[in-house]
Amino acid sequence: MTNLRDLNLQGKRTLVRVDFNVPMNDRGDITDDLRIRMALPTLEYLIGQNAKIILCSHMGRPKGKRAMEFSLAPVAVHLSQLLHKAVPLAPDCIGPEVEKMVVQVQNGELLLLENLRFHAEEEKNDPEFSRQLAALAEVYVNDAFAVSHRAHASVVGVTPHFAARAPGLLLQKEIDYFHRAIDNPARPLVALIGGAKVSGKLQALENMLARVDRLILGGAMANTFLKSQGFDVGASKVEDDLLDSARNLLRRAAERKVKVYLPVDVIAADSFAPDAVSMAVTIQDIPKGWLALDIGPASVQCFREALADAKTIVWNGPMGAFEMDAFSRGTMAMAHEVAAAHALSVTGGGDSNAAIEKSGEADNISYMSTGGGAFLELMEGKELPGIKALQ
């Protein structure tokens, strides 16, 4: 795969796929600009190389229709402020009017195309739409890791039209950190996996068994594993159809001599509400009809010991319903432990990163991945279409 720094970008029209799908409030104000800020190193490099920069992104789910509540106009304004440079917004992402604006872009200047998903052809990876989009430029750069698991036109379909193509600095960083953490880790490698469902992470768990030295399981998904071992988890969220899968995974872990850590106690509550009655109980003593909503203090201590000598930590998914303060202590404690570890720490997934931000430990994590689904697919051992297309 060609490195961005090896490309001749001087005066070249460069199509850059970014992920500017940022959250906005009802007034159209951006409430979290992290994804925009993460793209700045690539954009500043391209500006310094005197490239003619054509940015393309999606926003939300307009379902192939021109729904202006999903316009990238607020992003153009915000990006202009961050770069201290005008970033005009094109009225569309293809078509004669866009082509005229592209021709007028000068060296070191930028143009942001309107939402790609105003065209249903983007998500369908339509060949003609891909051709028209690619015709706007001479060089292609993918800097949108978060959508690189999608075989969409702007991610995959355009690439055959470019002899010069490369990952952006952000995408390259994602690839490099994942390789260091999973493919060639310093050991012991410990994976910390949480979240709501086993079903969404079963394939990742299966693949990681062959790579990790220890596996820590928390969140609601741990309930399925606990029930598979005969524990009564009350009214807690459980995927009963995956009890056999959970049992089999624990059996294979034992065969591989991978130590699996499950909660030994939980914060149980009589309802899922901020004012619920809650208490710490062992997993043997969850009251009938109550819910396990966080790992308990003994589990935190157990998991802390599992992380103590780790050299590499991969974290995906919170340990409990951290959005509610009453059930956030387990996740916050693990964020502090991961941050304090003398290890390469890589986290992925929106909930994991949100929890780390909430804990105040973001600056102490080696790398926080920008992609939830894409990060999980790499953990599953899959090759991402967007990365494969650059090779």
Rank of each mutant, 00 (worst) to 15 (best):
T2E: 10
N3I: 04
L4D: 01
L4N: 01
R5M: 10
N8Q: 14
Q10R: 14
K12D: 13
V18M: 05
F20Y: 12
P23V: 02
R27T: 14
D33A: 15
R35I: 02
Y45R: 04
I47E: 11
G48P: 04
L55D: 11
L55T: 10
S57G: 12
G60E: 11
R61M: 09
P62L: 05
K65Q: 14
R66I: 08
F70T: 00
F70C: 02
L72P: 06
L72I: 06
A76R: 06
L79H: 02
Q81R: 15
A90P: 05
P91E: 12
C93Q: 04
E97L: 11
V102Y: 02
Q104R: 15
V105M: 10
Q106K: 15
L112C: 07
L112N: 05
N115H: 11
A120N: 08
E121I: 08
E121Y: 06
E123P: 05
Q132W: 04
L136D: 09
L136R: 13
A137T: 03
Y140E: 03
Y140P: 00
N142D: 11
S148C: 15
R150W: 09
H152Y: 09
G157D: 08
V158P: 01
L169N: 01
L169C: 03
L171I: 12
H179K: 13
P185M: 09
L189G: 07
A191E: 03
I193G: 00
G195K: 00
G200I: 02
A204S: 14
V212P: 01
V212E: 04
D213S: 10
L217Y: 12
F225R: 01
K227Q: 15
K227W: 08
K227D: 08
S228F: 03
S228C: 02
F231C: 06
V233A: 09
V233D: 08
V233K: 05
G234F: 09
G234T: 09
G234W: 08
S236A: 13
D241C: 10
D244Q: 13
D244R: 11
S245V: 06
A246D: 10
L250H: 13
V258D: 07
V260T: 15
P263V: 03
M279I: 10
T282M: 10
I286W: 11
I286N: 13
L291I: 13
D294E: 05
V300G: 05
C302Q: 15
L307K: 08
A310Q: 09
N316F: 06
P318R: 10
G320H: 08
F322K: 03
F322L: 07
F322W: 13
F327P: 02
S328N: 04
V338W: 01
V338D: 04
A340D: 14
T347V: 10
D351G: 05
S352H: 03
A355H: 02
I356V: 13
I356Q: 01
G360T: 06
G360R: 04
A362D: 12
N364T: 09
Y367Q: 07
T370E: 11
G371H: 02
G373F: 07
G373V: 09
L376E: 03
K382Y: 03
L384G: 07
K388M: 10
L390K: 05
